[in-house]
């Protein structure tokens, strides 16, 4: 080719131009697809906001669901979501970090480890509704726990466990090897090295993963529906804190509940447009929460990368 190119500069120029044009066209298509995707996301957000923003009032946040759309609110839903998330975080984060720590730092290279790795990866791909069936058959009926906040939190914790595990492992892999050696070098044992040195260093990365996992859990609807959580809850669970000793109380764990996405699903499934407004308003709140959490996670990761680089 170079021979002909040398012989015919015009021909070369044409070829170069043709290739440049090809690249330009593909680059444009790429950007176009991106714009379509972004446009869709924007349309979705603005559609929700247009439909629902008018309903987001203090009364909406402080009212129970109602048969009259205009008086209905998401009080029980957002309190339910908050309490369920507490359970999910308390269960999923330690278990996920523990599993990630084991797989990354302790696990010998053998068949058992391999089996666990395949398992974790497969669990990440199990549809969320299957977790709901697991919870229905196991927690609700086999263990007789009923449709409670505890069960809701547990099922979402199992669901996001693979996310926390994968994030933990990535965060651990980013810890410089020198830190590990110097910590062992002072005579620390394996657990001391992990607890005092490795985990603190991996904390921002683990936190990012935990937030992403929790934001996924906040929006999950299917497993909560499957365990048969009621959609009409016009009361609040017992308060976790009280004015008299012992100040904390765990009765709320055994309380029935509803969560934001269930409330939204309930309203979107009704024929009346007025309820659709409520659904949109709930969607705005839900979207706001998940995007905020993800934005925070992205920011954390960005800051983390910057500090690692310098």
């Amino acid at each position: 080719m170079s021979v002909t190119a040398l012989g015919a500069p015009a021909e070369t120029q044409r070829l170069v131009l043709q290739k440049k044009a090809q690249d330009l066209i593909f680059g444009t298509i790429g950007v176009l697809v991106l714009f379509v995707v972004m446009g869709l996301l924007l349309t979705l957000v603005s559609d929700l906001v247009v439909d629902g923003a008018g309903r987001i009032t203090p009364e909406f946040l402080t009212s129970f669901p109602s048969r009259r759309a205009a008086q209905a609110g998401v009080l029980s839903a957002w309190i339910g979501t908050s309490l369920v998330m507490i359970v999910t975080a308390v269960v999923a984060v330690p278990l996920g970090v523990g599993a990630g720590l084991y797989l990354e730092e302790y696990a010998p290279k053998n068949i058992l480890t391999d089996a666990i790795e395949i398992n974790v990866s497969n669990l990440a791909g199990v549809p969320s509704i299957i977790y709901g069936l697991l919870a229905l058959g196991f927690f609700v009926y086999a263990l007789g726990m009923g449709q409670t906040i505890l069960v809701g939190g547990l099922v979402l914790a199992l669901l996001i466990l693979p996310i926390v595990i994968v994030a933990t492992r990535e965060a651990l892999r980013a810890v410089p090897a020198g830190l590990r050696e110097s910590a062992y070098g002072i005579g620390a044992n394996q657990w001391q090295v992990m607890w005092n040195y490795i985990l603190p260093s991996a904390r921002p990365g683990i936190l990012t993963g935990a937030i992403v996992g929790l934001s996924r859990a906040i929006g999950e609807t299917a497993p909560i529906i499957t365990i048969g959580a009621l959609t009409y809850i016009a009361f609040l669970p017992p308060s976790p804190v009280s004015a008299s000793p012992p100040f904390v109380n765990f009765d709320w764990l055994n309380s029935p509940f509803t969560v934001m996405p269930i409330q939204m699903f309930n309203w979107v499934s009704r024929p009346q447009a007025a309820f659709h407004e409520n659904a949109a308003a709930t969607g705005v709140l839900l979207l706001g929460m998940t995007l905020l959490m993800n934005g925070f996670a992205i920011y954390l990761r960005y800051r983390l990368r910057r500090t690692v680089r310098t």
Binding site: L41, V212, R216, G219, T221, V268, G283
Partner: peptide, 9 residues
């Protein structure tokens, strides 16, 4: 990150 129920809506 968008919840699936929102996509459904």
């Amino acid at each position: 990150a968008v919840p699936t129920v929102v996509f459904g809506y």
